[in-house]
Design a protein around this nucleic acid. Sequence first.
DNA 1: CCACCGATTGACAGCGCTGACATTTACTCT
DNA 2: AGAGTAAATGTCAGCGCTGTCAATCGGTGG
Lengths: 352, 352
Amino acid sequence: MSKAAGPGRQSTTIEMVADRAGVSSKTVSRVINNERSVRAETRTRVLEAIKQLDYQPSLNARGLAGDRSFLVGLFYDKPGDYLSEFQTGAVQRCREAGLHLMVEPLETASADIARDVSALIRQLRLEGVILVPPLSDNADVRDTLAVAGIPAVHIAPMHAPADSPSVDTDDRTAARKLTAQLVGHGHRRIAFMLGRPDHRATEQRYLGFTDVMHAHGLAVDRQLVRAGNFEFSDGLECARSILEALPRPTAIFASNDDMAAAAVCVGRQMGLALPEQLSIVGFDDAPVATMIWPQLSTVRQPVRAIARIAADLIIEHRPHQHGWPRPVPRPRLDLELVLRGSIAPPPAARAA
Amino acid sequence: MSKAAGPGRQSTTIEMVADRAGVSSKTVSRVINNERSVRAETRTRVLEAIKQLDYQPSLNARGLAGDRSFLVGLFYDKPGDYLSEFQTGAVQRCREAGLHLMVEPLETASADIARDVSALIRQLRLEGVILVPPLSDNADVRDTLAVAGIPAVHIAPMHAPADSPSVDTDDRTAARKLTAQLVGHGHRRIAFMLGRPDHRATEQRYLGFTDVMHAHGLAVDRQLVRAGNFEFSDGLECARSILEALPRPTAIFASNDDMAAAAVCVGRQMGLALPEQLSIVGFDDAPVATMIWPQLSTVRQPVRAIARIAADLIIEHRPHQHGWPRPVPRPRLDLELVLRGSIAPPPAARAA
DNA sequence: CCACCGATTGACAGCGCTGACATTTACTCT
DNA sequence: AGAGTAAATGTCAGCGCTGTCAATCGGTGG
C-alpha cells in the first residue's frame, strides 16, 4: 500500500515504540490504555520510549481493533448563543478522557431525522451523545439512540426519559430569588413573559415566579402574563401589550434576556425612565444582558459546567457498559443571581 | 474478539453486502467510493443490497485501510457569536462530501499550542483544518499544520500565508458603502471606533471609512478615531471619549455591532436622542444589532457561506494531494448592507 | 528443592476495509 | 476466427492496533 500521500504519512507505530522499549507491542498497548498489571518499571520505560519517539496512537486503528470510536456526539438544532460555550466545556472534559467531540446539527423539522441520526451513529460508532434542547425532547432522536444502544445524556428535557440521564438546572429556585428581588424592592404588580412552551425552563421559571407572588399574597394578573418564544421579536409584542395594561405594571419578569431586552426597547419607546419607572429582569445572562442600558439583572447559566457534567456522564458510563446505574443520574445545578442595574423601587415606593 | 459490547455490535459488513449482491467485497468498496469502472448494472445491484441491508461502512475501517480519516478540523479560540453558525455551514458542506467536522477549541495564549495541534492532527489524522480568527494568524498553529502537511484554510487572516488558501470578505467596500450612507445623510463630522488590531477586518473597515471621507473632502479627526477591541466594554470607553469631543460628532462608525451597542448606551446616558442627535452604525449584523433601539444599520456577514466555501476548499483539495493549485485560491465575498433605524440626518441638516 | 499461583508479558489472529496487482470479460480490428 | 486492448472484477495482504489465550516470571509454602 502506498504511503506516499494522505494524512498518515510515515508516523511512528506501536511496533517502533515496542522495539525501543524492549517489550512487545501488546505491552505498549497496555500502557496506552492504562491497564493495570504492567510493572511500574516497564511502564516507565514504555512511557519514555513514547515520549522520545513522540508517538501518537492512531485512533482509527485503536477504534477498529477495539471496537470503539473515541467519539462523543453533540447534537443540536437552532443553537442559542450558548452553544459555543457549551461545546467548549464538553470538549474540555472529553479531552481529559482521550475522547473527541463531534458536533452535528440536526433538523428537528426534517422527516428524515431518525435516518440521519442512525447513519451518524453507525458510521461513526459514537460512544455517546449529548442532546441539547429542543433535541433533548425529540422522540425520533431519542428512540433511534435507544434502539442503537447509544448512551445519551439529555440537557434540560421537558420529560426526562426513564432510562437515560439528564442534566438540569434549578430554574425554579432561581426564578424565586429573582422574583423576591422585585418584590423586595416594593413591586406589587409584576408582569411575566413566558418562553417557548416546549422548553422545560419556561414552566419552571414561571412556577418560581408564582411561588413567590403567592407567598407574598400578590395577585398574578393573567392579563400580565404573555407567551413569547424566547425571541426578541416576540418580546417586543408581549411588552407592548403588557405595558398597555392599566394600571401599568411596575416590573416585568422576562423568561430570558432576549425578551427582556425587547421590554427595555419598548419601555424606552414609550418614554418610560428605566429602571425608575419600570424594572425589568431577564434570565440566562446572555451577551445582550450587558450590552444594553440599563444592564439586566438576570440569572447566570453555568453552561460550561453543565456541558462538562454531561460529558462526564458519558465518560463514566463506558466502564459499566450494561446500562446506567440505578437510579439514573439526574444532576441538577444551582443557578446564580446576577444583579445589575435594571431593578429599582417602583415610583410609588419612591414617593413614600 | 468479543462482540458483546461496544458501539459496534453486529453491524452489517461489506462482505454481507457483497454476498447479497453476488460480487466481491472489493466491488462493493468501489461502489461506496464512487469509483468508475463499475458496470452500471453491477452498481445498481450493489446499491440495492446496501439499501436492503441498511449497510453503513465503518469509517474506522475505511480510514485505517485507506489512510484517511474523513475528518476535518475546525480550530477556534474565543469564538464570537458567529461560531455556531459557521460550524453549521461547514458541517453541511462536509456532509455532502461524506466528511465530518471536529471542533477543537485552542488556547492562543497557551505555550503548548503547537503540541496540542500536533497531537490532534496525528491522533485524528485530520484531512484538513479550518482556522478562524484569531487562530488564522497564529504562527505556531500555522507552522505545525504546514510541517504535518495538513491542508489548512485560513478565514480572514491579517497576513495570508503564501502557500495556503484563505477566505475573505470585502470589508473595505462594505465600509465604504456604509460610510457613504452616513455622508449621504449629511454627516460631516464622523467618529470611528477601531476593532482589535490583530484582526484584518479592523484595518479594512477603517480604510473603507477613510476612502469615502477623503473622497468627499471630509476631515478624519484623529481625536475621533478610538481604538477598541471589538468588545462592548471597550466601546463604552471609546464612545465616552468620542462624545466629549467638541464639537460633538454627529455620527459614529463602530467597527462592530457590540461596540456600536455601547455607543448607543453612552449616547443615551448622555441624554442624546437617537438617532436624531447621533447616528450610529456597526458591522457584522450580530444578534445585538436588532435587540436594541434604534436597531443598528450594519453590514451582514455571510457566515454560513464563508464556512461552506472554506469546507469546500478542503474537500476539493483532496483529489490533488500535491499541494494547492496555483495561484492559491483566495475567494473574497461581498458583504451586504443592512439599513435599519440608527441613521438619521444630523441636527444641522434637519434644521436646514 | 519443587509444585503452585497470581502477576506480567508475549504470540497471534483479526477488526472491516482498500491498494496493488492478477484475472476475466467484452469488444474492436484484421 | 484470433489477436489485442481496455474495461470490469476479483484475490490477497495488510493498515495499526487490541482481544484471547498461552507462556513466563517471581515468590510461596511444604
